[in-house]
Design a protein around this nucleic acid. Structure first.
Length: 554
RNA sequence: GGCCCUAUGGUCAAGCGGUUAAGACACUGCCCUUUCACGGCAGUAACCCGGGUUCGAGUCCCGGUAGGGUCACCA
């Protein structure tokens, strides 16, 4: 039986030719140097920082070169599919400012290179697999799960490389009539790639020769063994495995750069062999490092199952600003970003030119401290109005009871968030939603409460005395200097040093110093021993609220 | 186990044959200061190990070791 007869028997319904698709999806008309990248998630519904990291790299490369960034849903395994996963992915990435130019979306899809869901591309894959079969480069295999398990068992016993290859590929050269008989009897089959004979015939000694090199955009030259495996390219249901889908799709969608996790390096030989068999040129590959975390002192790949706290949703829940997360990811993914940022403090992050060769090669440990720091810097550049909107939106999204208070008066919130942020040395204490909310809660009567104890060195009887003295002298119209002068006077009248230095010189002459007096007022006003500038706080609280809080402690 | 990737302070990292081995975060101390934060100054802390090549190796080569990845009709 001829190979093309077999192809016809296997795929009787395929009427299109490879040429048809080549014409349907022509080379893209793009400026020179433009890169076409893509994100190819499987819709499992779980999105973590690593996905964002990858998405960001792809997006930057495409958009900064005037290219195209598209979304392709890799849903060839229906068992793993989660309802609505694609939509939530698009929404999550959008939240972080990552937009696709074409491909799958919540509304369906857009673009001339679709469909962008692999489950809807079955005919396309089959057309090209049919061609491979007709050329003798692929063949139907009827091995059952049990038979494959038995083969593996035998290989393990003999300490041989496991897998279907060479003589272990029992159906690779099945007699034609047998193939025919099984197909007509309705036996389930898959299509396997026929790895080059010269490769699998090579014994262990020649194996060293069977290597090839390929340049990786991140890691430089990679030297890998040539593919020897008869990998499955088309599964029983007629859908392709990742390997074949990747090759067919990235060729037909005219992808120029494939940026993906390093876990794909080991299947690169298969992909290269497949491209070769199809007569296509492979894209430029860039294999990124995986994001790790420490676990019991060991580095470990971020895992979907074990690390729900590292899902993107976690950062949103904690209230990290999307720009902060983006900034953080940029600092860990491109080694010269931080330097650039120092030189261009005010520039938007997307002015930075991202390059694959500056991406790290080794596992990156997620660093919460660094995120927090980057976040503080980032938030400082956001005007109070934007910060107020962000905080309110976040509180609403998180379903926090405090949201109502924040919403009530935006101007008030803005003033609160702007405390100490202007001037030469602005405060940098705002890091993320949950922390900010805690930081400012005392501004709201409903949330205000005394949290810290009164200073130990102050006689309890002095507290009402100091507060009533302060209340009596209080004037909302005072400027900062006049205001503090009153506190100095109040301190002296009550036996406290007006200046800390005086107290340090002669501690026996005073009960304490002006700082202790301030602390008493601060606690009465904010409930805490630590806070930003009290005068500013009072200006924001307003006279009546300020006085009410003081009176409440008398 | 085979194959592959990786290896500089606690973390992220510069480095490309000759450097007092950058910088950022974290940490410590001091200064500023009514508290906190900010800021300033100072400081602790690193080239995985062993062989080569070389006048000279963090840098090149080989061999270990360690960590990671991968060996599916999952992606």
């Amino acid at each position: 039986m001829l190979y093309d007869e077999l192809a016809g028997l296997l795929f009787p319904h395929i009427d299109k030719t490879p040429e048809y698709y080549e014409e349907k999806y022509p080379a893209r008309a793009l400026p020179a140097g433009a890169r076409v990248t893509r994100l190819g998630p499987s819709p499992t519904g779980f999105i973590h920082l690593g996905n964002l990291y990858m998405a960001l790299a792809n997006e930057r490369l495409a958009h900064q070169s005037g290219g195209v960034f598209f979304l392709r849903i890799e849903d060839t395994d229906s068992r793993r599919e989660v309802e609505g996963a694609a939509e939530s992915l698009v929404a999550s990435l959008d939240y972080y400012g990552i937009r696709f130019d074409e491909g799958a979306s919540a509304e369906g899809e857009s673009g001339a290179y679709g469909p962008y869901r692999q489950s809807r591309r079955a005919e396309i894959y089959q057309c090209f697999v049919k061609k491979l079969v007709a050329e003798g480069k692929a063949y139907p295999c009827f091995l059952t799960e049990e038979e494959i398990a038995a083969i593996r068992g035998e290989q393990e016993a003999k300490k041989l490389m496991p897998g279907i290859y060479g003589a272990w590929a029992k159906h690779r050269d099945l007699p034609p009539e047998e193939v025919c008989r099984r197909i007509e009897a309705g036996a389930p089959w898959v299509i396997r790639f026929r790895a080059g004979r010269e490769v699998w015939l090579a014994g262990p000694d020649e194996a060293a020769e069977a290597r090839f090199s390929i340049e990786d955009g991140i890691r430089g030259i990679l030297t890998l063994p040539k593919n020897r495996m008869d990998v499955v390219i088309l599964k029983t249901g007629g859908l392709p495995t990742y390997h074949f889908a990747h090759v067919a799709d990235d060729h037909l969608m005219r992808t120029t750069h494939v940026i993906r996790g390093e876990e794909w390096i080991s299947s690169l030989p298969v992909h290269v062999a497949l491209f070769e068999a199809m007569g296509w040129t492979p894209p430029a590959y860039c294999h990124t490092t995986v994001l790790m975390k420490t676990d019991g002192g060991l580095k470990r790949k971020l895992s979907k199952r074990k690390d729900p706290e590292l899902s993107l949703e976690y950062y949103r829940k904690e209230g990290y600003h999307p720009l902060a997360v983006r900034e953080y990811l940029l600092t860990v993914s491109n080694s010269d970003f931080e330097e650039w940022r120092l030189a261009n403090p005010g520039a938007p992050a997307w002015d930075f030119t991202f390059t694959t060769d500056k991406m790290g090669h080794s596992g990156i440990l997620f660093d919460m401290d660094k995120l927090r720091d980057v976040s503080k810097e980032t938030l400082l550049k956001i005007p109070a109005s934007g910060l107020a909107d962000f905080l309110t939106e976040w509180a609403c999204h998180a379903g926090l009871p405090e949201a109502a208070h924040l919403q009530k008066d935006k101007a008030y919130l803005e003033k609160i968030l702007d405390i100490g942020r202007n001037g030469e040395k602005p405060r940098k204490d705002l890091a993320f939603g949950a922390q900010i909310l805690d930081f400012i809660r005392y501004f709201y009567d409903e949330l205000f409460q005394i949290e810290d104890p009164w200073p130990e060195n102050i006689p309890p009887g002095d507290i009402p005395r100091l507060l009533s003295g302060y209340l009596a002298a209080y004037s909302q119209a005072d400027d900062r200097t006049a205001w503090f002068e009153r506190i100095r006077v109040l301190a002296e009248e009550n036996g406290y040093a007006a200046k800390p230095k005086d107290f340090k010189k002669n501690p026996e002459r005073y009960k304490g110093h002006v700082g202790d007096v301030s602390t008493v007022i601060r606690i009465a006003l904010t409930g805490r021993a630590n806070s930003p500038d009290l005068w500013e706080i009072q200006q924001i609280l307003g006279e009546s609220r300020t006085k009410a809080r003081l009176s409440a402690r008398l």
